[in-house]
């Protein structure tokens, strides 16, 4: 097989295949801080508190469960989501933060999810859970990856888990045994083999969303804040999430533009 990938790309790809994810320190810290600032500012506006200084962001976000009640959480989350998604700069910075990893693992002509998602997981809150799932099972294309950005340090139950590829492979071939069962039964079976993602603010996670993943009730003393967004190679197969309604092209190259606009000369009179 011919492959002209450079050493860095090969290293990343091997790790991605083996672990199902890759964590990297963000080189463009300025963009990352812009993302966090946008979330914090929108949060302050939503819950009507005084704007915070950057040095206080970490504590403010981690301790937000002392200010927001669970019953108000979804409205707060929706307000912040609408605010960050109305800004094209926010989307661009999101891409910038993950650009190098995406170019290595996905390609350089990309489609990006039109709306960035936000997870807020208050300690003890069972209403914001994502039971074990693979995104492909709910309509995503296996050609997509998720770029997951923590806005605070995430660890233990304050983070997400993912099933290792080697374990998924074993389960995949015996999936029939889950017929008639539910996702909790499935989770119980894979629980011992999942990996809990330990990640700090300043790092990003890119993961294979076809692997089963999810979260459980956050039993730490801090609130989890994380952003996630899907990317895929622009011309790779789409699932139920289509171009235009769910994805937008973000890095169309010159040759593609020429090709898409080319028509053969017409000889008919």
């Amino acid at each position: 097989m011919t492959s002209y990938l450079d050493k860095k790309d090969i290293h990343l790809s091997k790790n991605f295949f083996k672990k199902g994810y890759f964590i990297q320190k963000v080189s463009d810290l300025k963009s990352l801080k812009t993302l966090r600032k946008a979330v914090v500012n929108s949060l302050c506006e939503t819950i009507k508190v005084k704007m915070k200084k950057e040095k206080d962001f970490d504590r403010f976000l981690n301790d937000i469960h002392n200010t927001i009640k669970i019953k108000n959480l979804n409205n707060t989350r929706l307000n912040i989501l609408n605010s960050i998604n109305s800004s094209s700069e926010f989307h661009q910075k999101y891409f910038e933060v993950a650009k190098n990893l995406l170019f290595s693992l996905v390609g350089n002509e990309l489609a990006m999810q039109t709306r960035v998602n936000l997870s807020i997981q208050l300690p003890g809150d069972a209403s914001s859970l994502l039971p074990v799932h693979s995104d492909i099972w709910s309509g995503d294309s296996p050609f997509e990856v998720v770029v997951w950005i923590p806005l605070v340090n995430c660890y233990s139950t304050k983070t997400m888990y993912i099933l290792k590829p080697e374990n998924y492979k074993k389960i995949h071939s015996k999936f029939k045994k889950y017929a008639g069962k539910n996702s909790s039964d499935f989770y119980k079976n894979i629980k011992k083999n999942v990996e809990w993602i330990n990640i700090k603010f300043g790092e990003i996670l890119i993961f294979n969303q076809s692997l089963p993943h999810g979260n459980i009730v956050n039993s730490e003393k801090e609130t989890r804040w994380s952003l996630n967004c899907r990317f895929k190679s622009l011309y790779s197969p789409y699932g139920d999430k289509k171009i235009g309604e769910f994805f937008k092209p973000i890095t169309i190259r010159a040759a593609s533009r020429i090709g898409m606009n080319y028509s053969l000369p017409n000889l008919k009179k």
């Binding site: 622009l234 011309y235 790779s236 197969p237 235009g244 898409m260 606009n261």
Partner: peptide
Amino acid sequence: IWDVKSVLPSCY
């Protein structure tokens, strides 16, 4: 978006 959509039938 239209341009990309129009070439997708020719893609993998």
